[in-house]
Structures are given as structure tokens and as C-alpha cells.
Design a protein around this nucleic acid. Structure first.
Lengths: 236, 236
DNA sequence: GAGTGGTCTAGACCACAGA
DNA sequence: CTGTGGTCTAGACCACTCT
């Protein structure tokens, strides 16, 4: 007896996972019921329930009340895409993050912007353009509009010390966010700021964050394709 | 009494979420303990435990045994990036998916490929190159190598009917996957196959899937930037 | 030692699915 | 009607943190 230190529900999860991973139980097949598991492993039904419930939230099985638990159709791979604050991310690599402020000003919202920020046309909005550098090399061009109602003190921030994301998370707690990732070419101005060629492909992430009743911010973040990639992994 | 149909643990989760979303409890602040919650809501400790535990797996709070539960530092936005089978995805948009087979052959693995597939150098591997079309328009160029040990019948598949992803998920249950997303320019051959210009930026996803003891497949999927984007959302 | 979370039990009642 | 999952309780013991 050396390793059954793992909690019972984890052992059950592992046992089920193995059967699925080995292909012994295929998508659509029934998984033992809570009652069956609690007998098989001499555990209470609550413990079996926890094991199955967690596997369900992980997407490995599907459960239908009254019907049973089955191996999920694995027709998609879903993975946690974690978007971290750029300062943190660079620091985690042991590198130095610095910021160049290109613009930090108040402007009047045009029609399209007013719409996506949820303010009236012509209303004041904050506009910042920053270049983030990793060890002195530009890795992100960030063009951001902020709703003054969500973060009134935004423009007073020293962006060379505190990243916009960080300020916003502090002052406008995040309730909702959506993003889109695309490939594009930089504008001449962006290319100049990032010190890349006009024909160098870039990843662009457009993000819109909501804080309570307000749209807090819309941002466009451009990454040189040669210097940045998103990555992630998935484990059954 | 009209709406307390929601389970008790959900109500507690919602109550805590609200306090965080409104900014009343800031990152680092303590959240009421299980004991406090079970008294406050007249529920058992197990129910309070479930509420807090689920919020923790959602990343909204962090828990430390012996210390307590606190509002998580929201310095990252994590979102489910769902990678679906391309056929399913196109079908879900109500469009027609079709496939053009450019190559489907057995080859000998070079050094780099042998390494990433986990086979001996010179060992046979399956190589397919497909172009996926949505309503007749090319949207993905898929260059894939498959480990014959993981999916011996791969080359017998009619790829115009069954997508590689679909075949692999059927015959080599997925245990692990990792991916990288970058921006790049297409090779002349890829540009031709996708019917785009040589200078048009593309998203490229490189993926590696593991099935049990074998690396099942490594794939490079190229999407024209003008016709495809990844998107997702996040809700606190 | 007091307070916290981590786990587990042996019951219970309910809603629902399928024969 | 039987079997299934969904929820909940009122205890319990343990490991850990903090003072």
C-alpha cells in the first residue's frame, strides 16, 4: 500500500478515463451507473456521483437524467485558451517587459465605435495606442478604446508601469469577454511601430470586455507572426 | 415562491459571483467560509462546499486548505477554445463542406517527422494533403502525417466522405493534444490550392494528437486570413 | 488550538426515461 | 414500475494554516 493516497473519486475517474482512452468504451457506450460504481468500488453514491459529474463537466461523458451516463462523442477538441496579461506573460518567461506609449487621449466616438462601446455617438471615449516590448523587441501593438463610465481614471494611469489590462481588471471587474483571432497584414504605421516589414503577416486579436452594465473596452492587439504564437493543450 | 427552482448550490454561486462582478469583493479578498455559508443560507456544509469548489474550478476563486477561499486574481482571461471537426463546423453554419484530395500516400519518415511522430527514422507513415471547401471556396489546407500504428486503416478512408479528424477520433481515441496558432504566409503551392495571393496572410494551426501510447498524428492546417477566424467568449 | 478546506458516508426525496 | 441521475443533509475524520 503505497499510492492509493489519491482520493476515491479521483481513482474512479482515472479508471473510467482508462477504459475510454484504451478504446474499450467507445463514444455512445454506457458508463457504469452511480449505483454500479458505488458497489464496484465500495464507495458511497455521492462519491461515485462526484466522479461522474466531474467527468461530465470535463466533457468526457454526457449524462441524461433518467437515462444514464455515456461516453461523449469526441467530435471536438476543446481546450482552455488562456489569455494572460502581457506583462505577466513576459515576466513569466523571465524576460523584461516594457511599454512605449504612442497615444493616450480623449476622443469623440464615431458611429461604429459608439455602437460597439455602447455609448452615444460623439460621446467622449479614451483612446490609447501602446507598443509592448519583450527584451526591447516589439511584440504587440495595442490599439484600445475605453468607456469612461467603466473606468473614469483610465487616462491617469502610467502605462509604462501598469498595463491597460491590469488597470481595467482592477477598476472594472470583468463579467464577460469575447474575442476573435485572425491573420492580417499590418498597416504601414503598425509595421513601423513593430519594426517589421509591410508584408509580414500578423496575428490580430480583437477583444471586447464587459463589466457589469457597461462595455468596458474594445481592443485590437497585433502580434508579429514571426515573434508570437498562441498555444495550448488538452488532456483527456 | 416562483423562482427558487434553482438548486441551492447554484444560488450560492450566483450570490458570490454577483459580489465579485459588482466589485464589492476584490481580487485577494476573502470569500465567506463553508461554515459561514452553510449558516447564512441554512444549507449543509457539503452544499456550500460544492458551490465554492465549482467556483474554484471555474477559476473565479482560489482555495487553500487551512487558509481559506479568496477572490482570484483575474489577471488572465481563460476561455474555451473549441476546435471542431471542420465538416461539422461548416455544416453547423448551414453551408456545404467538400474536400479535394491533393495527396494520400505512404512515405518514409524523415528525421524530424520521425521524432515528432515517435517512430523510427525511415519507418512508413501516412501522408495526406487535403483542401477543405465551404460552399466551393477553399478555407483550409490540411497537411497531415499519421502514425500507422495508431490508425492502420487511415489510407483506406474516402476523405471526400469522412474527414481525417473524424476517422482518427473513431479509430484512435484521443488522450492528449497540443496546438499552436501562428500567422504566416502561404507557400506558392498552398496559395495556389487555396486560390489566394502569395502575400495574403494566413492563420496556421499546428496540432499534435496522442492516442494512448502512440502519437497519432501531426497536422498543419492553414486558413486564409481573409476567410477564417477563431473566436470565443468568456463569461464570469 | 481554532479555523479552514478535502474528503467521505449512509441515508433521503425528487424528476425523469424507458420498458 | 424500475433504474437512472440531481440534489441535499448531518454528521464524520483528516490535513493544513495561522496565531
Amino acid at each position: 500500500m503505497a499510492k492509493d493516497e489519491r482520493p476515491a473519486y479521483e481513482q474512479v475517474k482515472g479508471w473510467i478515463r482508462q477504459h475510454i482512452a484504451r478504446g474499450e468504451w467507445k463514444p455512445g457506450d454506457a458508463v457504469p451507473s452511480e449505483a454500479a460504481l458505488s458497489e464496484r468500488f465500495a464507495i458511497s453514491r455521492m462519491t461515485a456521483n462526484r466522479a461522474l459529474r466531474e467527468l461530465a463537466t470535463e466533457g468526457l461523458v454526457t449524462r441524461v437524467q433518467g437515462s444514464g451516463t455515456r461516453v461523449a462523442e469526441l467530435h471536438r477538441i476543446s481546450s482552455q485558451l488562456v489569455i494572460r496579461d502581457i506583462h505577466e506573460e513576459v515576466a513569466a518567461r523571465g524576460h523584461v517587459h516594457s511599454t512605449r506609449v504612442v497615444k493616450a487621449a480623449q476622443e469623440k466616438a464615431g458611429a461604429a465605435l459608439a455602437d460597439s462601446l455602447g455609448v452615444r455617438k460623439g460621446a467622449p471615449v479614451f483612446h490609447t495606442v501602446l507598443v509592448h516590448l519583450e527584451n526591447g523587441v516589439p511584440i504587440q501593438y495595442e490599439d484600445r478604446y475605453v468607456n469612461p463610465q467603466a473606468a473614469p481614471g483610465y487616462l491617469q494611469t502610467d502605462f509604462t508601469q501598469v498595463s491597460p489590462t491590469s488597470h481595467l481588471l482592477q477598476h472594472a471587474p470583468l463579467t464577460e469577454a469575447s474575442y476573435t483571432i485572425e491573420a492580417t497584414l499590418p498597416t504601414p504605421e503598425e509595421a513601423r511601430a513593430l519594426d517589421i516589414g509591410n508584408g509580414d503577416p500578423c496575428l490580430v486579436m480583437m477583444r471586447r470586455t464587459v463589466s457589469g452594465a457597461h462595455v468596458a473596452s474594445v481592443a485590437r492587439q497585433l502580434y508579429p507572426g514571426s515573434r508570437y504564437s498562441f498555444s495550448g493543450q488538452f488532456q483527456a
